[in-house]
Design a protein around this nucleic acid. Structure first.
Lengths: 360, 360
DNA sequence: CTGAAAGCGCTAACAC
DNA sequence: GTGTTAGCGCTTTCAG
């Protein structure tokens, strides 16, 4: 508003070119090149902190000053150094995301949604791939925490005591995802895998299926779905379940092989529940290769709702999960926490949808 | 935790517990909590720089000292602050990767390979999703450069002048990927999309196909493949090519719709080349839905070599790309550059493989 | 092999 | 509104 005492005068050299002058007078163009805040400040004829404000809290600066500074920034091609900024402010504007893999599109889409939302808020995502089973989650976490992320997203709810300790010590918001538990570390966005298993079982039994096959990856969440599935079947008096496990995350090929194993074993299921759509697709392929009609001879149910399952075969049903919702909610919850706001829903059950494609 | 002055002892105590002593004597446990290098040094009875050396250049330190320091680190639960370390050393140990999306597994797998290899070397990956078409690659890049990455991976070879300028100014190794050009910014790992198009055309023509359909996403690389495809066909005297474009990256559904559009338009191709396996899968599905035999009535060729294409249908041929090789090579090249070594092969053509599944 | 001094580039508090 | 003064936590010289 007010053109204070020494009005920058809108372009044109600042009154006091260098103030300090003597005293140390560290040369500007050090050596390493990179333009610094000081260089910009000097060119604009303002103090460094003013440049910083123009960048981070422009509402505290006069429109005139902003313009002069912006001009100087453009002229110099200045790129802020967030390592320095983060160190000084203790806010890295970085969020870490630990997932087993991103080749499995179920995680990839959630990460994308997370990245998009956080990006809008000025945050970036540091990717940590822990592999299956969360091999060195501990080491990975240590490496990641040294970047001082402002928040962290984890996959699953089972973490080593060491991991939990470090997470707590870091004092940053933690979002566990893809599962539910009564004892989350902090925030939680997921759904009940056991319920998924039960819902699928009830559904299939209701449709008249009686002999079940289970093709599952061996990760903890797939095991929970299996548990729910088997339990619900037992409640219906069905105990005839033939299962075949493969290493997570499970591929189409493994799905094929798994069904082959079951069939070659002499068991003849009338329905198969798979731990991913890729595997369901494999089962479907193997079934067709063997001349089995789907869902006539064999019903196939996947998990994850990949795009292709929606079009590949009218008989390929699946359990739909809103992957993007998980990423979005995780981002929102984390941002709220970081900003010090109260998180409306620290725990969110995003649920699931049974998508039935077979008209049988 | 705070055995202050009296050195922890425990196999030999340090001679001079605190040297400086007077002079400033800033309290250790500031407030914000986080254990610092100084805390560890104090506990171990050594100077901060020694702790730093134990962590970064242990070969310069005595085995005894290392042990004492390691002990102190474990005791305090110290986690290095890489923001500070990066600022001081001018090496962030961070590498940025810009890709359009990771939901498309072709990129996801390359990123995984990159992350794995870089992780071994102590680097982490900052993920940047630019979207299709590289919407705000410029802004994204600016945001990313403020983290002072030690290297950066880009997707494609077409970048705005502004992007190139910034990249050059950053003075860090740049790896362009997924394509080839005689004028790379720095390092380059890819293959010729035009050659892919030509190879596919020659292959199909050689097999006797004459009426071609093209189902492609509209990204620059898919356009190059199309160009090569059309050019090679022209060389064979074939000009009858009906194409249908969709927004990148292209989904299975879009593949279905694209073929539907072509067929409904009255054109009856005997072979269709798609810009991704997902789309090829869609085309295949639509063909089957319409009662067309594949490859009897219609040959379908994809691109990318996704897992499912290998098993879905014996007629679904594809162009195989070694996705992991791209990530691996990118990591190696970048590491070499960062370490100041000479990069053996600044430009690598990883080639492609025509994977034929149809026995027709 | 170990240490002291001096920042890396930026921002939090306070002054003015 | 804008400037001054101190560091944030670590590593870089350069001494011993």
């Amino acid at each position: 508003m007010s053109h204070t005492d020494p009005p920058p005068g809108r372009r044109r050299g600042a009154a006091r070119p260098q103030a300090a002058g003597a005293e140390g007078g560290r040369a500007s163009a050090r050596s390493s090149g990179s333009v610094t805040l000081d260089d910009v400040a000097r060119l604009a004829g303002v103090s460094p902190i003013t440049v910083s404000r123009v960048l981070n809290r422009p509402e505290l600066v006069t429109a005139d000053t902003i313009e002069v500074v912006r001009e100087a920034i453009a002229r110099t091609g200045y790129v802020p150094n967030l390592l320095a900024g983060g160190l000084a402010s203790r806010r890295s504007r970085l969020v870490a995301a630990l997932v087993p893999t991103i080749s499995h599109s179920i995680f990839a889409e959630a990460i994308e949604a997370l990245t998009d939302r956080l990006g809008e808020a000025g945050y970036q995502v540091l990717l940590g791939l822990s592999g299956y089973p969360a091999a060195r989650e501990d080491d990975l976490l240590a490496a990641i925490l040294s970047r001082r992320p402002d928040g962290i997203l984890l996959t699953g709810i089972n973490h080593s005591p060491e991991t939990r300790r470090r997470l707590l010590a870091a004092k940053i918001p933690v979002v566990e995802t893809w599962d539910l538990t009564p004892t989350p570390i902090d925030l939680l966005i997921g759904f009940s895998h056991e319920k998924v298993g039960r819902a699928v079982a009830d559904h299939l039994v209701g449709k008249g299926y009686r002999r079940f096959g289970l093709v599952g990856a061996s990760d903890e969440r797939a095991l929970k779905r299996r548990k729910g599935f088997v339990a619900a079947l037992a409640a219906h008096g069905i105990t005839e379940v033939e299962s075949s496990s493969v290493p997570a995350p499970g591929s189409l090929r493994q799905g094929r092989e798994a069904l082959a194993r079951i069939l070659d074993g002499g068991f003849r299921p009338d329905a198969v529940f798979c731990s991913s759509d890729a595997m369901a697709h494999g089962v479907l392929t193997e079934a067709q290769a063997r001349g089995l009609s789907v869902p006539g001879d064999l019903a196939v149910l996947g998990f994850g709702n990949l795009d292709f399952s929606a079009h590949t075969h009218p008989a390929l049903s699946t359990v739909g999960i809103d992957r993007q919702a998980i990423g979005r909610h995780a981002a929102e919850a984390m941002l709220a926490r970081i900003e010090g706001e109260t998180v409306a829903e620290p725990v969110i059950d995003v649920g699931f949808t049974l998508i039935e494609r077979a008209s049988t």
